[in-house]
Each structure stands twice: as structure tokens, then as C-alpha cells.
Simulated assay, not measured.
Amino acid sequence: MMPRITLALAIAALALSGSAAHAQSDKTGVEKLYVLNCGEGTAGDISRWTPGLNEGKTMDFVDTCYLIKHGKGWFLWDTGIADAVAAMPNGLVPADPKAVTWRRPKTLAAQLEQLGVKPDDVKAMAVSHTHPDHTGNVELFPQSVLYVQKAEYDWPGANNAPRFKPSHPVELLTGDKDVFGDGSVTILSTPGHTPGHQSLLVRLPKTGAVVLSGDAVHFRDNWDNRRVPSMNVDKDQTAASMQKIADTLAKERAQLWINHDKAQRDSQKLAPEFYD
């Protein structure tokens, strides 16, 4: 017969191992945030982003995606310019010379492969909005649940075409969404640029809180001066969304990472490096 003390120790050890297994299965929180190069481009005339200013002035833009490793799985924010653009020698040249000519130095697929992440590993994703420089690779992840505002999903595309494949699994939102239920990744409803535009609040254990802007703002000067681009669908909503982001930054003591701002992106660690 096992001595009583030994038996008690064995039971305690078994209970601890069970607790550890349970804790592992209930793991929450963001572990890593990767900044991905999802396009680089040059705008022929930036006055559309700064009405009344910068007529005829060109500017380099970047396009950024973000891959988040959470305790419960992988989450992708924005998908950038279509990977097919990488094969275009002159980039994706717009019909309007004032718009952005986009290039794709690295495909999204190749960057994921470098990280050992397969498209099927990405179980959930979201796009800030449905402009093609943010949705170019959505169908690289046909099984991934797409979080999108209902106002954006229902917004008619060109010739009233749907903005996503009807077969793509989707969760329609009507406001903010705590993605994993632990407060670590929160979609923020920030309409104005488009009817259902959204931004993302990420709480990192070491880096702290970060707000990923989407196109609620396009570059730092526009943020500092609260400028509203002429192509935005609603000026008042845009201003209100900028204020919501400002309030969030103050409350969370967060950094604002602006999607298209080249100077800021050039100062950041890019994948395979990460923020934790």
C-alpha cells in the first residue's frame, strides 16, 4: 500500500498537472504582432488626401498588413495589394495619374511562409475597409472568418457587385467587437472614409496598446491637422472617428500606427521580427 504522505503528494502533483493543462488550453492574450509589407506605391497628386493643399505634389505611400499571434490562434488585419501585382514589372498603374501606382516587393503568401504560417492556420481576419489596397488577398484565406461591419458589407461595389465572395464565411458587425473575448484585440467602428470603416486596438504585454488606423487617417500630417480626404464618404463621421481614436489613445496610453505612413513604417520592425 502506498504511504499516506506519498499518496497525498501524488494526488497534489496530478492536480497541478491538470491545472497546468487547463491553463494551457485557456491561454489568452496577444503573444506577437508582426508588421507585414503589403505594398509600396507613389501617389501622383496628394491633394485628394489634403483638400486645398499640396496640389500636384507626389508622395510615397506604403501599405501595411498585421499578423497577430493570440493564445487562441492567428488573426490577420488587412490583406494589402493583391499578390499578383508582384509579377507586374511596372506595378499596378492606375487609370488616373493622380492616384497611387502600387508595387508589391514581397507577397503576403511568401511572408507568411517565412513565418511558418499556412493560410489555413489563419482562422479569423478583418479588413479595415473594402478598398482594393486592403482586400487584395482576402481569398487567400477562403475558410477564415471575416469580421466586417454590416454597413461595409452591404455597401454596393462597382456595378452593384458584392464586395466579398458570398461564399466567404463572415461575421457582420454593428459596432465594436472584442475578437477573443479577453480585451486584447478589439475592432473599433470608425466610419467615414467608407460607410463601415473600422480600426483595431491591440493590447501587447510589453509594447503596450497600439491602435492600427486603417484609413481613418492616411499619414501623420493629416492626423495632426484632422484633415478629411475628399474621397471620404462622410466628413462628419470621419471627424467623429478621429476623435474616437484620439480618446482611445488617451485612455489606453496607446501608440497610433498609421497604415499608409511611410516614415513611420520605415521606423518599425518588419516581419520576421515582431512586437510583443
Rank of each mutant, 00 (worst) to 15 (best):
A43V: 14
R253W: 00
S128Q: 05
L108T: 05
K27G: 07
L173M: 10
D266P: 08
D236M: 09
D266Q: 10
H168M: 06
N225Q: 11
P191R: 11
E113G: 06
D236Q: 14
K150C: 00
L188W: 04
R220V: 11
A86Y: 07
D133E: 11
P94R: 03
Q243N: 12
S17W: 06
P119A: 14
A209V: 03
D236H: 05
F75T: 00
R253N: 15
G196D: 04
R163H: 05
A158R: 13
T135Q: 02
V211E: 04
W223D: 07
D83Q: 04
F164V: 06
P205D: 02
N232A: 07
T64N: 03
D45A: 02
Q198Y: 03
W223C: 11
D236F: 01
N54R: 12
W257R: 13
K269L: 15
F180K: 05
D121Y: 00
A271C: 10
G136T: 04
T101H: 02
N222R: 09
F219M: 13
M59P: 00
I258G: 08
T50M: 13
Q149T: 04
T107Q: 09
N232R: 03
L146M: 11
G116Y: 08
R4C: 07
W49S: 12
R104Q: 14
K177N: 10
T101W: 00
G208C: 13
E171R: 10
Y147E: 04
R4F: 10
G214P: 12
A12N: 08
L173R: 07
A20R: 14
